[in-house]
Amino acid sequence: MTATIVKQPVPAASRLHRATPGAHFHDSYRMALASDPRSALQLYLDTVTRTPAWVDRMMALRNAVVSRIGLKDLGALGGFDRAKPASAYRPGDRIGIFELLHVSDDEVVLGDSDRHLDVQVSVCREGGGLSMSTVVHVHRPLGHV
């Protein structure tokens, strides 16, 4: 059985909610989540561990192209130490292409900042569901590209 995923505003319970004003882009999707003892970070790690190979190939292509114009190579979405337990991660640690910005049992916020844009992603457990939200702030024309 496939979970129903619905588009919604960024939840008020998420730390990203207050980052939406002035954002160039933001979205959020929610699905029901049965009782699950995993933390928001563990849910995220379990998800990116199953990143399809074609996504990693696209990230490798992206990294090869943007490195030629001076942007950083982010690596792969699932490029992290899979033996490291979720409880060992602290804000400032790198998890794949993102830096861990905030972690609690109910929400993990990851992001990446560059001269041209700031991206933040949240996985937030609230009200019997799981929401994944994205907020992007663009700083210069290259961020639009």
Rank of each mutant, 00 (worst) to 15 (best):
V135W: 00
V121A: 05
W54V: 15
K84N: 09
G75S: 10
H26T: 09
A83V: 08
I95R: 02
V123I: 13
R62H: 08
D105E: 14
V119P: 00
K72M: 07
L110G: 00
M58R: 12
A23P: 05
L61V: 13
W54C: 13
H17E: 13
H116I: 06
A13G: 10
A13R: 05
G92L: 03
H137K: 10
V108Y: 01
L77C: 06
L71Y: 04
A40D: 02
D118M: 07
V121H: 01
G92V: 08
M132T: 14
L117A: 09
Y89R: 01
D93P: 06
F98W: 04
H102S: 12
Q42D: 11
H102T: 06
P9S: 14
E107A: 07
A34S: 15
A13W: 01
G70M: 05
R50L: 07
T4R: 14
A83E: 15
K72Y: 01
L16W: 02
A3K: 15
A83D: 15
A32L: 08
K72I: 05
E107Q: 11
S28T: 03
T20L: 02
D27W: 06
A76V: 01
Y44W: 12
R82A: 04
R90N: 12
I69F: 12
C124M: 06
L61I: 14
V103H: 04
A60C: 08
A60Q: 13
T51W: 03
R62Q: 06
Q8R: 13
L100M: 10
A88S: 15
S104T: 15
K72E: 10
R62L: 03
V65W: 13
L130H: 05
P21H: 02
G75N: 10
A34C: 10
R115E: 11
L43K: 09
F98C: 00
G129D: 08
Q8L: 12
N63K: 12
P9G: 04
G127T: 06
A12P: 09
S104Y: 09
R30Q: 08
D112L: 07
A86W: 02
I95F: 07
I97C: 02
M31N: 08
V109E: 00
L117K: 11
D105Y: 11
G70W: 04
G92K: 08
E126V: 09
H137G: 00
I97M: 07
K72H: 08
V103K: 02
D81H: 12
R15H: 13
A40M: 04
M31V: 09
A12N: 13
